[in-house]
Design a protein around this nucleic acid. Structure first.
Lengths: 189, 189
DNA sequence: CCAGACTACTCACAAACTTGACTACGAGCC
DNA sequence: GGCTCGTAGTCAAGTTTGTGAGTAGTCTGG
């Protein structure tokens, strides 16, 4: 069970349809978890079957009907249980890092291109997360919000996202600079 | 195909047995990829079957014999192909972040404990990576090594590891501080 | 007025990953 | 002498993820 708890945690923020969740999970906001839509629909079905969430049909006029899901008491209890169980170590898997590891033996050009792309997606995510942070804390400043706000969980994970994306971005930029300089001096065929 | 290229990239550093690789992948050094030993043995078998690596038996006196694997030309070619293919977005999955997201609705105590644990494993990894960096660059300073060293790939990914672990560590510490302060003031039942 | 994008969801298969158990021998410790 | 730890692997089963394809109606731009 893995995606399971990420879905439950996301539903703490309110009712969502599978489709809406899919968008949240696609970007990765608020959750440190990515999932494809198909996975989410499947997981939602299981969660409902297990009584951890309930869905209600919403009939819409100008678009397909949808089902909105809410946590049940059992769902919250399951989250509670999960939160107190020992955490599995963070899982990180990155193609690009593998490529950089091999960069002395392969053509660096495509790797440079991918570093640039990763840097720009990191910058975009960073901007998105920073906007989310502002929305979450409204007019308050960060310190006050963290002290007195009533719901800081999403803010804290979003902060993690910011810091992470900044780290990724900077690493990509610095790594690309190193590789470009080496390509110029050309002393490493 | 996923683990596949991480193994190939690891074998750029020299001959390894499955057991040795398992240790490298367990810590995650040099690769942004974790894998259990069983996975590695399986993948090594497939890679050998596909002619991307070759194994040679090494008879040992006071311990079990082992097989050391080396990249073949086809293996390097496959890495080259992989490096120029578009990179998949970084995959990040973190239990602990999910728990923090839910922290306003569950008991924060166990989450605090897990944040402390994560912080200390991050610090340990950071120390390990920093040692690895020093070993890789020997007496040279970083700038010179990155300009003139002949194998900077592993150094660059190790740098990424350092920055990442530092980011993770700091986030855990800061998050724990916020949560502890809120627990003290107790205005959020 | 038609192509393409967006909402909303479903089915199904194939890869990849996780888990637990098991073998076998040598070395070091008390 | 028995215990545990480290080396070096293998087998099998189960869960989770990834991927591609498909349906069906609505809104939007040229």
């Amino acid at each position: 069970m893995a995606l399971r708890h990420a879905v439950l945690a996301a539903l703490l923020d309110g009712e969502y349809s599978g489709y809406q969740l899919a968008k949240v999970f696609d970007v990765g906001v608020a959750n440190f978890w990515y999932a494809a839509p198909q996975q989410l629909y499947g997981e939602l079905a299981k969660l409902e079957r297990d009584g951890l969430i309930t869905g209600r049909q919403v009939i819409q006029r100008h678009r397909p009907n949808k089902r909105l899901f809410t946590l049940t008491g059992a769902g919250v209890a399951e989250l509670e249980r999960f939160a107190s169980a020992p955490a599995k170590p963070l899982v990180l898997r990155d193609d690009l890092a593998v490529k950089v590891h091999a960069v002395d033996h392969v053509d660096p050009e495509p790797v440079l291109a991918q570093l640039a792309e990763r840097a720009s997606t990191a910058a975009a995510k960073l901007a998105l997360y920073e906007r989310t942070l502002r929305e979450l804390r409204q007019d308050t400043d960060e310190e006050t919000f963290l002290r007195d706000g009533e719901r800081v969980g999403p803010y804290l994970t979003c902060l993690a996202g910011c810091r992470l994306e900044r780290t990724v971005h900077d690493w990509c930029v610095d790594t690309a600079r190193v590789l470009r300089q080496r390509a110029r001096t050309g002393s490493h065929p």
